[in-house]
Write a protein that binds this DNA or RNA. Sequence first.
DNA 1: CCTAAAAAATGACGAAAATCATATTTATTT
DNA 2: AAATAAATATGATTTTCGTCATTTTTTAGG
Lengths: 238, 238
Amino acid sequence: MISFDSMKSMLDESYKHVACSTCKSRGHGLFNGISGAELDTLEAQRACNFYKKTQSLFVEGSTPRGVYCVNHGKVKVFKRGDEGKEQIIHIAKAGDLIGFRAMFSGELYKVAAESLEDSNICFIAKEDFLNMIEFNPTLRNGIIKELSQELSDRADFITNMAQKSVRERLAFSLLILMDIYGEDPINLSREDLANFVGTATETLIRLLKEFKEDGCLEIEVRKLRVIDKIKLISLAGN
Amino acid sequence: MISFDSMKSMLDESYKHVACSTCKSRGHGLFNGISGAELDTLEAQRACNFYKKTQSLFVEGSTPRGVYCVNHGKVKVFKRGDEGKEQIIHIAKAGDLIGFRAMFSGELYKVAAESLEDSNICFIAKEDFLNMIEFNPTLRNGIIKELSQELSDRADFITNMAQKSVRERLAFSLLILMDIYGEDPINLSREDLANFVGTATETLIRLLKEFKEDGCLEIEVRKLRVIDKIKLISLAGN
DNA sequence: CCTAAAAAATGACGAAAATCATATTTATTT
DNA sequence: AAATAAATATGATTTTCGTCATTTTTTAGG
């Protein structure tokens, strides 16, 4: 059965198949500096799909068959710990590529991905993607750079996890989320936010309240809006 | 001034310049499946250096000039948190390549590297290395795979940091260190081990004692030997 | 071999954050 | 619109772990 909300989204312009050539999100990501002929190839090879909120792209342990390119929406990439609690490793936004790591490692997925809101996500099959990488040095270097960048981000992430208090980590996380959500308010469940920060949901809720009382944050149920970035930066502890 | 110990190491066979063609460590790492002509190139381009214990390879914020290939010894790769406390991200052993991430990102080093024991480490200049990568598909794919693998490891690391207790993390860390040290006892200062696990040195010392009393571990000042891997695995909590 | 410095170990204590229980609000379904 | 479920919120309690102070042991240098 189709909910009113997802129905609306299907009728929404965001659901229309977007040509790669006119895809506004392309400018942000890997396929930015792509040329005419290659753009046509990409166009021909990708399949555009609609994912409604909380729909799974792939799960831990499954076989990678291709990469996902977000045209519109947000996707969480996460791993489950021993007790089943999710740790969100990354939140992908429009223009971002998901699941390319597994293309190269030859292993099964070690993480899972799920849409956080109604999203348009294109799919490029493994062989097609690997072909592009193999024969397009620009694309290839872009991928290598992307992998390197993420590696660096994760070193930061690990250091923060290990050394910062939950309060500092929340402030830091909100700053990251500001970049991801841009002009839009941060739209995450308390549980997802807790799983991104790496804390218990109850602790997160208490801290959000503190931040609100400190005048850093405006809270409307599921929408968070940072109103004092400077203060948040100082709360993040450098 | 040269200490007796480093003097000894310089005279030690481990200090001798090793040809890449006969380098025993090469089998473990990226340069494993390298062919005759390319091996000669590598041989000609690399410089072999001796680093005594606690010597720095590079520091945070400096300009990357090439990659380091460990012939013999161990190297810690770490990042400093706000209060200067080190977080060890990775410990490199013989055969491992260090500092290649920064070759691709075009940024300054975001981490630092320092030898944990007297080590032989070869150096390959940036242009030479990038050339090799550009024109050798095998090597290139090896690097991409390596980057992907590390990315996956770090997702695990983050999840562990966020969800496991210090005790579980220590058990997990010891298992990783067993792989790195192989037959040799784990040889790290309490502080380094604490900075790898992500805890206070005092807490780490107390836990080591517990593990010893539980019969998992043999402790000789700076040398740790796991004697019950099975138990350690259960302590690591899956 | 002795001395100074560094590293490791131990104890006492407090703060941070997890857990458990329960209430309240918001969404969803019928 | 009522009913059920899910998400959010709050309180009480406990556990874990970090911090600070001090002692003991080990290492390195003269």
